[in-house]
Amino acid sequence: MLIGATLAILVVMILAIIRGIIGPTLYDRILAVNMFGTKTVLLIALLGFVMGRPEFLDIAIVYALINFITVVGVLRYSDSFAFKQPAEKKQPEES
């Protein structure tokens, strides 16, 4: 069952990557990264149990924390001038 759950998480990660690549807006990509990060936490915890080395949980905790910091950083800098172009305008250029 552990392996099944691991595979399921891997599938979800692939789906998140697809969303990250096709976009379409920047926020979808950030969302994909965020989701990918939380799934990484789960995957690492699961892998730790699959391989019988629960020290992996330390890494999972680090991920949970770092993910938050990254998203907050993105939020903060999305307020700054570099982001001021409206999201719709960017559409044709992307993808």
Binding site: G37, M51, I59
Partner: peptide, 28 residues
């Protein structure tokens, strides 16, 4: 892709992915 922030986001995914790879290789 011209939008650099999107590129950074994808680079973040890459970092997470390679970390998963390292975990799978037991390189904690």
């Amino acid at each position: 892709m011209k939008d650099l922030i999107a590129v950074v986001m994808l680079a973040g995914i890459y970092g997470l992915l390679s970390a998963c790879f390292f975990v799978a290789m037991d390189a904690v």
